[in-house]
């Protein structure tokens, strides 16, 4: 196989002949290869760093790392588990994605298919501007402005649909809106520009001849979108959503500000409070003086790293496996 000196039938193929190489090409090839290697190397080094620092603390952990809801690293005792961090992280991020995905698709379709050209450009610019708002501002806005606005809705859902586990009573009070529900909605707003801008790009690239083919068959505008634009952009849209999910999983400050700390373990409800991986680590940043307690947080970071990695891998798999291009 290596060297490719024979074809699939076993006949030997001629070797590549020596040829003139320009020095510019050699230098440029070296630079690009080095950049490529640097990114791979840094990912590997981050992984190794997390692992090395986490292992001693994991060995000293007196609680079940995966299943314990408590995270105790003070008073000379190490008893930490990531169950609740995992639940809060995944719940808030997935909830955010569930809200953001349809809205982002709506915006992207509006911008590419419905909006008049003069309007589409400034509108797209405004959506992109959302990405420029610092997350700490989103956090402040979420807890001071948006949380209280959502509070009546949260109460109504809790009161009327409380039989559904996600809307059951959580481990914090709804008043003020310091819940996963609020955090999820704010995260959704933060994801919109990411998912929208990528989706807009892919929807935009639907070949005109596909669009005209559908219209000429007597498709209405919406039917045309359904038969050509959405199938064409689907893999890109899903990949964009997974990119957004990765962003939501790692979001720190906004979630830290919004979520109320919880006195009890998670009840797997949207009206829980608590910490995500990222917000837990950030909240303890001032205490990273001793190696073992710090290692506990690093091991939480390692899990987040793996989680994000898996989400990205799924995104690649979806985008790579189901791309239909003419």
């Amino acid at each position: 196989m290596i060297g490719a000196m024979s074809d699939p039938l076993g006949n030997s193929l001629p070797a590549r002949r020596p040829t003139v190489r320009r020095p510019g090409d050699t230098i440029f090839q070296f630079l690009t290869t080095a950049s490529g290697l640097a990114i791979v190397l840094s990912i590997v080094l981050i992984g190794v760093f997390l692992l090395l620092k986490a292992v001693p603390s994991l060995a000293a952990d007196q609680a079940n790392f995966l299943l314990s809801p408590n995270f105790v690293t003070t008073g000379g005792k190490l008893a930490f588990g990531i169950r609740d961090l995992f639940v809060v992280t995944v719940l808030s991020s997935v909830f955010a994605l569930v809200i953001a995905m349809p809205v982002a698709m709506g915006i992207a379709l509006f911008l590419t298919q419905y909006a008049p050209r003069q309007l589409a450009r400034p509108f797209a610019y405004i959506v992109d501007l959302l990405a420029a708002v610092p997350s700490v501002v989103f956090g402040l806005w979420g807890i001071k402005v948006f949380g209280p606005v959502l509070e009546p809705l949260e109460r109504w859902l809790n009161g009327n649909l409380g039989w559904f586990p996600l809307f059951a009573n959580g481990n914090v009070s709804i008043s003020g809106g310091g819940t996963i529900f609020t955090a999820g909605v704010v995260l959704a707003v933060m994801l919109l520009p990411i998912i929208t801008s990528v989706s807009r790009e892919v929807f935009q690239q639907t070949p005109t001849m596909q669009i005209e083919g559908a219209l000429a068959l007597g498709a209405t505008r919406w039917e045309m979108i359904r038969t050509t634009v959405i199938p064409f952009g689907r893999s890109g849209y899903i990949a964009a959503s997974m990119l957004g999910l990765g962003r939501a999983l790692g979001e720190t400050v906004a979630v830290l500000i919004i979520l109320r700390s919880a006195p009890e373990p998670s009840r797997i409800s949207l009206f829980d409070g608590g910490y995500t991986f990222a917000s837990k680590i950030a909240s303890a940043a001032s205490e990273f003086t001793e190696a073992l307690p710090t290692g506990a947080y690093i091991s939480a970071g390692l899990v987040l790293f793996v989680l994000t990695f898996v989400v990205n891998a799924i995104a690649r798999w979806i985008a790579g496996g189901r791309v239909h291009r003419p």
């Binding site: 596909q210 083919g213 000429a216």
Partner: peptide
């Protein structure tokens, strides 16, 4: 159309 455009 000029170029074949089946839905891919």
């Amino acid at each position: 159309f000029q170029r074949p455009n089946p839905f891919p």
